[in-house]
Amino acid sequence: MSKTTVISIAVAPDTVDLQQSSPLYAAQPAAGFPSPGDDLVEQSLNIHDLLVDNPTSTFFVRVSGDSMEGARIFADDVLVVDRAVQARAGMIVVAAVYGELVVKRLQQTKTGLALCSEQVGYEPILIDDTEGCFIWGVVTGSARVF
């Protein structure tokens, strides 16, 4: 609802035709103390900024299965995968294993680098066959909608 402010002005009757004057003063005049934050214009938070460091090399994938629940990765989670990050032992990675994309933790074992699950009852997958297995990207975050 618009507020009407009545402002009385003294005018010489012969200079202004009051019948035809436009309602110039009908609107609320901007007055009072200006907001002190007006010069600090900030955007509202965008979840993308929190999850994605390198937009051009970051892809999203969806999880199926339960073998990474120990790393708090659950079925239907969206994983943030950054291909520009160099994979190292200890990181959670997306790897291509004989044509299938899987998410596992990359770990150094006595026999070499292996893809390990975070759930009992899953055998580690040794990455010794460079033809069939390669690291696709490094998981840098996850998102879950309840």
């Binding site: 892809f59 999203f60 994938v61 969806r62 999880v63 199926s64 299965g65 339960d66 073998s67 990474m68 990765i73 079925a75 969206v78 994983l79 997306v94 299938e100 994309l101 899987v102 998410v103 596992k104 699950s117 759930q119």
Partner: peptide, 14 residues
């Protein structure tokens, strides 16, 4: 549409 639509993103198994 792996990179342009949420309903289409790739699935990775654990």
């Amino acid at each position: 549409a792996y990179t342009t639509r949420w309903s289409d993103i790739a699935t990775v198994s654990t």
